[in-house]
Design a protein around this nucleic acid. Structure first.
Lengths: 143, 143
DNA sequence: CTTTGTGCAAACGATTTGCAGGATG
DNA sequence: CATCCTGCAAATCGTTTGCACAAAG
């Protein structure tokens, strides 16, 4: 645990970010969960025992983390942004029923051929978004 | 032109929607453009000569059109929703420089094998989002 | 004539911003 | 000790809502 904390500090410093308790907490929280939380969810999680960060600070921390490439914003839902500390390229699955978001391994889809794009467009990255229903929600339907 | 208008009226009626000038205008506008406009852009476009629709009405019209499946909401950008009258499945290209959005033909990417998804997830649809720079923005860089 | 849509303005919710004090390197 | 961060509250922006009036079928 301590080692992990040290690693986080090292990572933040290596990106030129000042290490504050709030920034640390936001990043650590994002690293240990994989559900692409919203700002509100992060905030609730961080302050559940004792108040540690204010809303504006979480926004600021996320922006800083995003600028140095440690965190990505994920747009899969109207109204709210979600955040992801998994910066490696990957795809997303979204449950249309409960809204849950899950990562899909990058290698799951192999055959996307960007050279087929219209001449003139220069692709830099891509991502597949799959929508459907997750285990839990399929069960719901069957009851 | 008249024929096109008749078709739009027929389409709206066939979906059980009352045909109002505002609804007609919103849908016709979406049909004739392919840039996935925001509400603000639609509004500006509709009211450029004379005021025809209010903001709340455009929102209401879009919601009605969405409910009957004539229009889709497109989420590719923070903060704003964009709308698309192309309901057939297709992919999207987004220019990271100017924000332009362009459709990519569904057949461009053939090999996505949804059976490779984790057991338990039931896929209903998917879509590929490509990011990069468009013709115009590449030129900009070269100058 | 009944139902539904429109337009205005107020309400809302997520995100941003200004600024005074506080912590970081 | 200079710089940058935090926290609060006010401000902003896209979107939604309540309601009186108007239009559609």
């Amino acid at each position: 645990m301590q080692q992990k904390a040290d690693e986080i500090v090292k990572t933040l410093k290596s990106k030129g970010l000042r290490v504050t308790p709030q920034r640390f907490a936001v990043y650590a929280n994002l690293l240990e969960r994989e559900d692409h939380p919203t700002v509100e969810q992060i905030l609730t999680n961080l302050n559940q025992d004792a108040p540690t960060s204010s809303q504006a600070t979480v926004y600021a921390a996320l922006q800083a983390l995003r600028e140095v490439g440690l965190v990505r914003e994920v747009l899969l839902e109207e109204g709210v942004s979600r955040y992801d500390a998994n910066v490696a390229p990957h795809h997303h699955f979204r449950c249309n029923c409960c809204g849950a978001i899950e990562d899909i391994d990058w290698n799951t889809f192999q055959c996307i051929d960007l050279s087929k794009l219209r001449l003139g467009l220069k692709a830099e990255r891509y991502e597949v978004t799959v929508q459907g229903s997750c285990d839990r929600c399929q069960v719901k339907y069957e009851v």
